[in-house]
Computed example of a mutant assay.
Amino acid sequence: MNNWVEACAAGDIEQEDLVRFDHGGRTFAIYRSPDDDYFATDGLCTHEQVHLEDGLVMDDIIECPMHNGRFNYKTGEALRSPACVNLKTYPVRVEGGMVLINLG
C-alpha cells in the first residue's frame, strides 16, 4: 500500500533544524541532520502535547520548548524527563528534491 506523502521541499529545512508538517488532522516534525539525512517523528511532545516545531535541535536531539524534555529524533527515544514516552518515528525518503514520509 502506498502511504508516502510529500511533506516539504528538502531545501525548506536547514541543517540541525526541523519543520512542522500537518496532514490528516495530525502533526509531524521533519528533521534534517548535520549529515543532510532526513527524519520524521510525531510533531507533539509526548509529555504535554506541545508542538516541537519551536524546539531546539542539537545533533540528533530535539528538545521540547516547554519543559526541556529531550528525544532522539532518529529513534524517537525519550532521553530526558519530563518526557518518558518515546516519539513515534516514520520512514523518510527524498525524491526530486521533495521530502516524503510514510504514514503507514
Rank of each mutant, 00 (worst) to 15 (best):
E6S: 13
E16N: 15
V57L: 06
D42Y: 09
Y38Q: 02
E63R: 11
P82M: 04
M58F: 03
A9C: 08
L56W: 09
Y31Q: 06
M66E: 08
I62C: 05
N102T: 07
A10E: 15
C45A: 11
V19R: 15
L56A: 02
E53I: 13
E6H: 00
M98S: 11
D54E: 14
M98W: 00
P82A: 02
G24K: 07
L103Y: 06
T41F: 06
L18P: 02
A9S: 13
H51Y: 12
G96A: 06
N2L: 10
R26Q: 14
M1E: 13
T27I: 11
G55Y: 03
L44H: 08
D59I: 00
A83K: 00
I13C: 13
M1L: 11
V94Q: 10
V92F: 04
D37K: 12
T89F: 04
M98Q: 09
K88G: 10
A10L: 10
R93I: 09
E63Y: 01
N102M: 09
H67Y: 09
T75L: 04
A7P: 09
E53H: 11
R80S: 13
T27F: 04
L56H: 10
T75R: 01
H47I: 07
N68S: 12
G97W: 08
P34K: 13
G24A: 13
C64G: 05
G55S: 09
I30P: 04
V99A: 04
A29P: 07
K88A: 14
A40H: 03
L79K: 11
G96D: 14
F21V: 13
D37M: 05
E16V: 06
I101D: 01
L103A: 10
G25D: 10
V5D: 03
L52Y: 00
A7S: 12
R32K: 15
E48Y: 05
A29I: 08
I13A: 09
V99W: 01
E16Y: 01
Y31V: 05
E63K: 07
V5Y: 03
H47V: 06
H23Y: 15
D17A: 15
N86W: 01
N3H: 15
C84D: 07
K88Q: 14
F21R: 10
A7E: 08
A7M: 10
L18F: 06
L79Y: 05
N68E: 13
E77P: 00
F28Y: 15
Q15I: 12
I101G: 00
F71W: 06
M98R: 12
V94Y: 08
A40D: 02
G69F: 03
A7W: 05
L100G: 00
P65Q: 09
D42P: 03
A83C: 15
N72L: 02
D17K: 14
V50E: 12
I30S: 06
G69I: 04
R26E: 15
C8D: 07
L52Q: 01
R26H: 11
W4V: 10
L56C: 08
V99Y: 02
H51K: 11
W4L: 08
V92W: 01
D12C: 12
G76W: 06
A10C: 12
E6M: 08
G104N: 14
V85N: 10
V5W: 05
I30K: 03
E63V: 07
D54L: 13
M58C: 07
A9Q: 14
E16I: 01
Q15N: 14
N3W: 12
D35V: 00
